[in-house]
């Protein structure tokens, strides 16, 4: 009974959120509705005893990814309702509708046709994890993290701290003007580009020479082929130089 009530409430939360994402006029509201949907899903995961997945759903999806969405929305300044009327790709709304409807029909057909077709089982029974020690998957993961992988785990902690320190230093505003780019930089880059063109031509030539050397018997046929390869490489080099002039 409890299970059915929990499912019904969560399903309602998820569906209202999902409809809200596409119906809201303000992109920020859409992102908030998405969080609502993800939270509802997390509760459904708990009722399926997938506790770790539920935690990940909240921490990663609701916590991190939607926040990134919000960052992008606010950075680009598209948090106005009228921006939604612009269609960057012609016909994208129509195509999205078709794809969504097709997916829906496909899912309904799969469920109605044979509900056991996907996994071969209508529902999973029994807890996830090792029944003998009454372990659940959260504990299994925790044990793996703090025994076999504890070194990598602690190193990751250091890594995140360093990333924060570095981000603060880089984001901190500096006083004074930007330094000018040295005058010769552009010339250096141009010379660099020309050198790359030359190196490519010479590399082709060297490969041809290596291929000629690799020839087992060193017959006249192989050497003539190598000679013609050399010619093409020379031509390319000449072309490259001609292009520069």
């Amino acid at each position: 009974m409890v299970e059915i009530i929990v499912f019904a409430v969560c399903a309602a939360i998820v569906l209202v959120g999902a409809v809200g994402v596409i119906a809201a006029r303000n992109p920020v509201h859409s992102a908030l509705f998405l969080i609502q949907t993800l939270f509802g899903m997390a509760v459904l995961f708990i009722s399926l005893e997938a506790h770790f997945l539920a935690a990940v759903q909240v921490v990663v999806y609701a916590g991190a990814i939607v926040i990134l969405f919000l960052f992008v929305i606010m950075l680009l300044g598209v948090d106005q309702a009228e921006d939604l009327n612009i269609e960057p790709i012609v016909g994208q709304r129509f195509i999205a509708f078709i794809v969504g409807a097709a997916t829906f029909v496909l899912m309904v057909a799969t469920l109605a046709g044979s509900s056991d077709a996907i996994t071969g089982q209508r529902q999973a029974t029994g807890p996830l994890g090792d029944e003998l020690t009454d372990n659940n998957n959260v504990r299994e993961l925790a044990e793996a993290l703090f025994t076999d992988y504890v070194f990598a785990f602690e190193a990751t902690a250091i890594l995140l701290t360093i990333a924060v320190v570095g981000a603060v230093v880089l984001a901190k505003r500096t006083s004074g003007e930007m330094l000018p780019v040295p005058q010769n930089t552009l010339e250096i880059r141009e010379a660099d580009y020309q050198a790359r063109v030359d190196a490519r031509a010479a590399e082709l030539e060297a490969n041809a020479a290596a291929a000629a050397e690799a020839g087992e018997d060193g017959s006249a046929e192989a050497s003539s082929a190598a000679a013609s390869d050399d010619d093409t490489a020379d031509d390319e080099m000449a072309d490259a130089e001609g292009g520069d002039a």
Binding site: N184, I188, A195, R196, A199
Partner: peptide, 9 residues
């Protein structure tokens, strides 16, 4: 090596 030949910096 071939690109290094042409460097000025």
């Amino acid at each position: 090596n071939l690109i290094a030949l042409r460097q000025t910096d």
